[in-house]
Design a protein around this nucleic acid. Structure first.
Length: 475
RNA sequence: GUCCCCAUCGUCUAGACGGCCUAGGACACCACCCUUUCAAGGUGGCGACACGGGUUCGAAUCCCGUUGGGGACGCCA
């Protein structure tokens, strides 16, 4: 029986999650689900300096909010724990010792200063910056002596010269790297903590991860990790490298917090599925453009449909998916989503009609709240376009509207018909000032729905106010 | 600098085996329809194979080069 497919998301808690991370997590989750496999969450907090507990919390919260459940790992447990790298030192220690015994790892006593000046000199002379191998040639006895004397040392992996590391990338296809292009790299820092190359590779293997979808920036790290695993005699997972995501200006997404932080988007009211539908199509192709549930997203996911060229973020596209996400939301959920500001402002009896009227016309709770205030706060704030519309209105319009309203207060169509015959106005000259008088702005949901929402008293008051504004403007 | 990756409408992308591509879809944009208004909705339009060489009866698709963008070369991940 073939081993079940297992994917992972392995973030380091050094910052807030952004769209790039989120997509990596999503693709791994989708790949696992599409194959009935396992999706695992591992926390890579080996960098004590930059890892922070609050980022860890935020990470978990972001993932949960997105709806990406993990079946194994941090917070839920599993057979291969612990799932925080900071708790896995015993395993790393034993494995590192094994590498030393085999002679594939050696102690390096070089100071950061020396390493830096060597690197600078290499670059100046046009050579690739690589470790020059001073400590690789140290006699073991000499290394032992310096260690015993209390000298600090990092551990480096001895990269075999003249070999080729080949692997089949899940998205890029066949890859080959010559080991001569790779310098001996650090697998354990002087402070005793394992490096990314090491802990990341070793944990994937130890946790039974079979498929790794990760950022493009790891492509040239892959041969190092393959070398480590081979030295240990372990099977490596299959790697697939996703093209980077660029921001709207074409620059690579950075880890810095910004408008693209997931948390920001969430606060702005974006629905998780809007984000997921958008992200799933950045670098992956579905055969259709339909809005999909998480389940459909994974059912239709195919690793072969992963693209290999970088894609650029565009909020306009995200808004499109938000639109579709909201359209598929049941009324109660939409009402919840609109938030406190709306709940306080909209009369309970009008809750349903309000949601119906607004659906399709707003993309965020802030917009919904603005409409709630626009409709139920008196007097409504007039924007400049509606002031103009009021000033330019036919002088007979508002008096006639008041009369028409008195005659058919609960019937929008009757009201409009009466108004038309009475004033002879129609089209823009009728509706622009009417909309301005009633809502204070020039665009929005269907006027008929708003008419019902406003109610007779408010309609009368607004028409009266408009008549006065109109006169003032003319004077 | 060295090695590696990428290159189709403004954006996301379709494009196995070269012909079915006068390059398809979606977002945006524009127009029209609907609604006696705007928005929403419907229909349609605009719009791209980075450049230069090859190979071939035929290339977006294969090869080479150029240009552009990105990544790696860290005791960051």
């Amino acid at each position: 029986m073939p081993a079940a497919l297992k994917t992972r998301f392995a973030p380091s808690p050094t910052g807030r999650m952004h769209l790039g991370n989120a997509r990596t997590a999503l693709f791994n989750a989708l790949l696992a689900r599409s194959a009935g496999g396992t999706f695992l969450l591992r926390i890579e907090d080996t960098d004590a300096e930059r890892s922070r507990p609050e980022y860890l919390e935020a990470l978990v919260e972001d993932l949960r909010w997105l709806g990406l459940q993990w079946d194994e790992g941090y917070g839920v447990g599993g057979p291969a724990g612990p799932y925080r790298q900071s708790e896995r030192d015993p395993l790393y220690g034993a494995l590192l010792e094994k590498l030393i015994e085999k002679g594939v790892a050696y102690h390096c006593f070089c100071s950061t200063e020396r390493l830096q000046s060597v690197r600078r000199a290499q670059i100046d002379r046009g050579a690739p910056p690589r470790y020059d191998g001073i400590c690789a040639r140290l006699a073991p006895a000499e290394a032992q002596r310096r260690l015993a004397a209390g000298e600090g040392a990092a551990l480096r992996f001895r990269v075999p010269p003249g070999e080729t590391v080949a692997f089949e990338d899940l998205v890029r296809g066949a890859q080959r790297f010559g080991t001569d292009a790779i310098g001996d790299f650090v697998v354990r820092r002087t402070d005793g903590s394992p490096s990314f190359f090491f802990s990341n590779a070793v944990d994937d293997a130890a946790m039974g991860v079979t498929h790794v979808l990760r950022g493009d920036d790891h492509l040239s790290n892959t041969p190092r990790q393959l070398l480590i695993l081979a030295a240990l005699g372990w099977d490596a997972p299959r790697y697939g490298h996703l093209p980077l995501i660029l921001d709207e200006s074409g620059a690579p997404l950075s880890k810095r917090e910004g408008s693209l932080a997931l948390a920001t988007l969430r606060e702005e009211g974006y629905r998780p599925l809007a984000l997921l539908n958008y992200l799933a199509r950045l670098g992956h192709h579905y055969g259709d453009d339909k809005f999909k549930s998480l389940r459909e997203l994974s059912e239709d996911f195919h690793a072969e449909s992963l693209g290999s060229s970088p894609s650029r973020l565009e909020l306009g596209q995200l808004r499109h998916w938000q639109h579709l996400a909201l359209a598929s939301e049941p009324p109660d959920a939409l009402w919840e989503w609109m938030g406190e500001g709306v709940h306080r402002c909209v009369p309970p009896a009008l809750r349903g009609p309000f949601v119906d009227a607004l659906r399709g016309n707003v993309l965020s709770p802030v917009e919904a709240r603005d409409w709630a205030h626009r409709l139920f706060d008196d007097p409504p704030a007039l924007d400049s376009s509606s002031r103009e519309a009021l000033a330019a209105a036919d002088p007979g319009l508002f008096p006639a509207a008041l009369e028409a309203l008195a005659r058919s207060p609960l019937d929008y169509h009757g009201f409009v018909a009466a108004l038309r015959t009475r004033t002879g106005l129609s089209g823009k000259s009728l509706f622009r000032p009417l909309r301005a008088a009633l809502t204070g702005t020039h665009e929005g949901p269907e006027l008929a729905r708003l008419f019902d929402l406003l109610g007779e008293d408010r309609l009368r008051a607004r028409l009266r106010a408009a008549a006065l504004t109109h006169q003032d403007a003319r004077r």
